[in-house]
Design a binder for these strands. Structure first.
Lengths: 241, 241
DNA sequence: CCACTCACTCGTACACTGTACGTCGTACGC
DNA sequence: GCGTACGACGTACAGTGTACGAGTGAGTGG
């Protein structure tokens, strides 16, 4: 196994030494900077998806030449790393001073909102070979929360892992589904899915679709239901109080 | 929301009518076919990752011209759809005749193995707008298993959802991690992670790394631990026996 | 004041991608 | 035997990431 794995500090080194110069420009308006490049890249990815994010288009959005970007970012990989770390920074840390379930619930809900805002990020959050500083701060805070709640190191690792699995798995599924609300689900089920499911071949799927339709099933409620189930299942793993 | 969502039958329509002709060739060796194209695409993606799968390279592996592929596949999207459905077909269905936990455990373990074999598939399993026949058969079997175990339609939906979230979330994390075994984890933690974590800034991460290292933590065990936790948490949702 | 350095910008070029279009050879039904 | 249609594929086009190197202009040492 041949992995390189270094921790990067995204906004350091490549950026212009703005303090070392007598602010030759407004520094945030006209001139480029790594922050501006990354921020615009996130806006572009939010708007057009990750496939719509190309160096040329990004440069265009910044009124710059494509190759100018490479002064702030070594390559597209590094750009993605920096984008992911900004996304991590948007996630609320688990607050101190409450019970661990409320704290983890709050950060996980926040993370889900952030990932819904930046769906392109889901597949990359843990897959970058070099975790950024916001990522590390996040992990430290979560681990601290669990350890203070009385989880042993091993059980905290299990809990951390399971909660992340739930978060990323849910976000992945959520963005995949072609409906968001109960109404959209009803429309899709009625107009698209049901007509394509022969009742004799798929009796249970037909039954499910019919019942869920009749009862006004809302897929948006699935998140908290599963999250609370997972949190409750983790509670017995605590050893002390 | 503007989604097209049709159910495709992957190996039908575009393929050569092999029975209508007096087998002008060996039909599986030399000649192309949608099955052969898709199978080779999966082999290529397994070997080189999804970014290594290009129409030209796939054609090369099949000793054909790039444009020949488009006689069996409308575009790369449809190729991916067909590949995903083959992956679904590799997953064991939950066996009948056992308790629901064993059945779902078995199919989820199988699914994890399949996804480990085809890591490129993880992000696409539920994101294709048109579920293939193997996908539908899979869903039907899982739903049947849960309903027969006494889950109501709504609870079966919750359970199905949570188990899929766990499966995909785990597979996603698993492929992201730069280590697979306990030994590799130990090496990574010692050589790469710990040196980059200042103890005063990340006390809990340092503590965790040290303890896990000392106790020979094996990330491979995480899957069954979490799966059994989820299965146990779902048990009370059953209403009857 | 001049020369030099160096951060920054970006035009061009190359190898690669998906695929639209059109052109073949050939095997088949009549 | 012939028209037809199927399957194969060469070429071309717009797009991608980025290597290379040339330009520009501001700051500094002499």
């Amino acid at each position: 196994m041949n992995v390189r794995c270094t921790i990067v500090k995204p906004f350091e080194g490549t950026g212009r030494r703005v303090s070392a110069r007598k602010q030759r420009q407004v520094a945030s308006d006209a001139g480029l900077s790594k922050e501006r490049v990354v921020a615009e890249a996130i806006r572009l990815a939010d708007r057009e998806g990750v496939t719509g994010l190309s160096m040329r288009r990004l440069a265009g959005a910044l009124d710059a030449g494509a190759m100018s970007l490479y002064h702030y970012v070594a390559n597209k990989e590094e750009l993605l790393d920096a984008m992911i770390d900004v996304v991590f920074a948007e996630i609320e840390l688990p607050p101190e001073g409450t019970d661990w379930q409320s704290a983890m619930r709050q950060r996980t809900v926040s993370a889900r909102q952030v990932l819904a805002r930046h769906p392109w990020a889901i597949g990359f959050m843990e897959s970058r070979t070099s975790p950024g500083p916001a990522h590390l701060r996040h992990r430290e805070a979560v681990t601290a929360c669990l350890r203070k709640a009385g989880f042993t190191v091993l059980m905290a690792t299990h809990a951390n892992w399971l909660l992340d699995v739930y978060l990323y798995g849910f976000a992945l599924q959520e963005t995949s589904l072609p409906f968001d609300t109960a109404d959209e689900f009803a429309d899709m089920a009625e107009d698209v899915f049901l007509p394509q499911l022969p009742p004799d071949e798929f009796p249970y799927l037909n039954e499910s679709a019919a019942v869920l339709l009749a009862s006004g099933y809302d897929p948006a409620e699935e998140f908290l239901f599963g999250l609370d189930l997972v949190l409750a299942a983790l509670e017995p793993l605590r050893t002390s109080t």
